[in-house]
């Protein structure tokens, strides 16, 4: 699957896409579990190599930019880096288009956070509690 540094990079990425505030961030809400289940023989298995490539490009971009691994950046640094990635304005030589796959990762992250907990994410229905789905009145 993913090696330990890729995993740390992925978790930092997910927590930048849905950061913790007074409600759990993506990782605490189980989005990582959702995604790993999908990548490990699930519906997104075919995307595993793309995830690996994209994450290593992101890692290289972070090192070139701030001299640290993506997981070690503070939140503001991660956000500003991803804003550049989102626009395709990257400083290093990526082996795939940076922006389109980022949009896919955002989508997968939202699937984990907002779909039913049986899919592995949205732990204890935290995503639903936050927005008020399930509530009455």
């Amino acid at each position: 699957m993913l090696d330990i540094s890729q995993l740390r990079c992925l978790e930092a990425l997910l927590d930048t896409i849905i950061p913790p505030d007074d409600y759990a961030g993506a990782v605490e809400a189980g989005v990582g579990d959702y995604l790993l289940r999908q990548l490990d023989g699930g519906d997104l298995a075919e995307l595993l190599p793309t995830y690996q490539r994209w994450l290593s490009n992101l890692e290289a971009e972070a090192r070139a930019d701030v001299g640290k691994s993506f997981a070690e950046l503070n939140e503001a640094e991660r956000v500003s880096l991803l804003k550049r990635v989102e626009k395709g304005e990257v400083a290093t030589d990526w082996s795939l288009e940076p922006a389109p796959f980022f949009r896919q990762v955002v989508e997968h992250c939202a699937e984990g956070y907002y779909s039913d907990p049986d899919n592995g994410g949205n732990r204890n229905g935290i995503g639903w509690q936050m927005i008020g789905y399930g509530a009455r009145g």
Partner: peptide, 15 residues
């Protein structure tokens, strides 16, 4: 679509 702003948008506006 991502970041704190997106999370808050869903929180404020889903309903």
């Amino acid at each position: 679509r991502w970041g704190l702003e997106a999370k808050r948008y869903m929180r404020q506006n889903f309903r």
